[in-house]
Design a binder for these strands. Structure first.
Lengths: 153, 153
DNA sequence: ATTAATAATGATAATTATTATCAATTTCAC
DNA sequence: GTGAAATTGATAATAATTATCATTATTAAT
């Protein structure tokens, strides 16, 4: 069975005149099944279990490929390393709230931000590939913790 | 004369019980006068002209300080190194369009995105410190160039 | 099926930006 | 002035990613 992601991946390979390969197919198959955000360190050890000989460079290369093809989106979330996530087609993009205290990341969707984004792109005759909206601050739980600490002291 | 930025910097120093220092004052004075986005490499050579003995670590430390105090905002713009920009108070935040072809960065302001951002934060009881919205794609000029190339071939 | 051209691979060196360390110096409340 | 604490410059360390390169795999054309 050919999933949406797989189809998009194969299209990308074809239009760029790249060659398919066992290793890359394996990595792509694995990534297709991920949920949420992940780093290289999250997935590389699991890939080694499937194929002991996969080099980390190939994983990096494949991630780059999938980002370029629009299948993955990369975030930094204020950190040095990259986080990746699948972007299904025909699903509105979501954005992120990042707690700078506990590191928690929450997703939200906002139709009107999407709309405004497109309106501005049009105004600048800018052709959008992707976008990232990260809101940094303190989550509800961390605010409560801080409050209770203040009361105790 | 005490500028708005200087006042905010001194407040921050005071509330964190830090000490002032010649070096840091010098760096802060310099940064106050910057316009637009800059990296360490943009400003460090100029600082050396003012004081030959300033170490790059001190500049990094001071930048971090100013980001923490909300005077500077840091962006990655899809690159590894950090870009910084002054955030004046009482001025609505702006966002960025980034051309992945030529690297050009355009700023825009959108009141309704700001509004939606605040609405969502409220919904999640999230206390906003700052935000970054980066829209990646191809600018008008680069699109034209591509079109004309296609016609020629 | 063979070949020839090109792409992919793993290992690892290189890069690059930033942070950590630390002894010496500076600041500042008392 | 004194002493505790913060700051400093030099530089080592870190950490994530990319570049290099010899070898292997893939593919299109024969």
């Amino acid at each position: 069975m050919l999933t949406e992601f797989k189809r998009r991946y194969q299209d990308f390979i074809a239009t760029r005149k790249l060659k398919s390969s066992k290793r890359r197919d394996l990595i792509v198959d694995f990534i297709m099944q991920t949920k949420g955000h992940f780093t290289i360190d999250d997935i590389y050890p699991q890939m080694l279990k499937i194929d002991r000989s996969i080099g980390i460079a190939t994983v990096y290369r494949t991630l780059r490929l999938l980002v370029d093809s629009g299948i993955l989106r990369e975030h930094s979330f204020g950190e040095k390393r990259g986080y990746f996530e699948l972007l299904p087609l025909h699903t509105p993009l979501h954005d992120h709230l990042i707690c700078t205290d506990c590191g928690k990341i929450m997703e939200f969707q906002c139709q009107s931000i999407e709309q405004e984004k497109r309106r501005i792109a049009q105004q600048y005759q800018f052709s959008i590939r992707t976008h990232k909206l990260e809101i940094f601050g303190i989550c509800a739980q961390c605010q409560q913790q801080k409050n209770s600490l203040n009361i105790q002291t």
